[in-house]
């Protein structure tokens, strides 16, 4: 696979570290309670299609990336800097 890093350009996936679901962007507030954290830490969707994921360009620029990837075709639909996505929500 190749991932089009917004900073570095298209790179071999060996440079990246896969972290998991993009849901990890949405950390509950400190007072959200144990249930919310349980959901955040453990509960995962398992779509046979487009999945939202966090990848880390560990051997490259060290940017965290939020990607949309079709897990049935390995096609990357979008790659964004995670920090820009979070900032955009704030």
């Amino acid at each position: 696979m190749r991932i089009d890093c917004p900073l570095c350009g298209c790179r071999d996936s060996r440079e990246f570290h896969y972290r998991g679901t993009g849901k990890l962007m949405e950390r509950p507030a400190a007072d959200a309670g144990a249930e919310a954290f349980h959901d955040y830490i453990y509960m995962r969707e398992n779509p046979a299609g487009v999945n939202c994921e966090l990848w880390f360009h560990e051997m490259g620029c060290r940017a965290w990336l939020l990607v949309e990837r079709d897990v049935s075709s390995h096609e990357f639909l979008s790659v964004r800097l995670a920090e820009s996505v979070t900032r955009g929500k704030q």
Binding site: A63, W64, E83, T86
Partner: peptide, 13 residues
């Protein structure tokens, strides 16, 4: 890697 995650993904502010 964890610090990068916290700084970029959770608290870029």
């Amino acid at each position: 890697t964890h610090l990068d995650f916290c700084a970029q993904v959770l608290w870029p502010e």
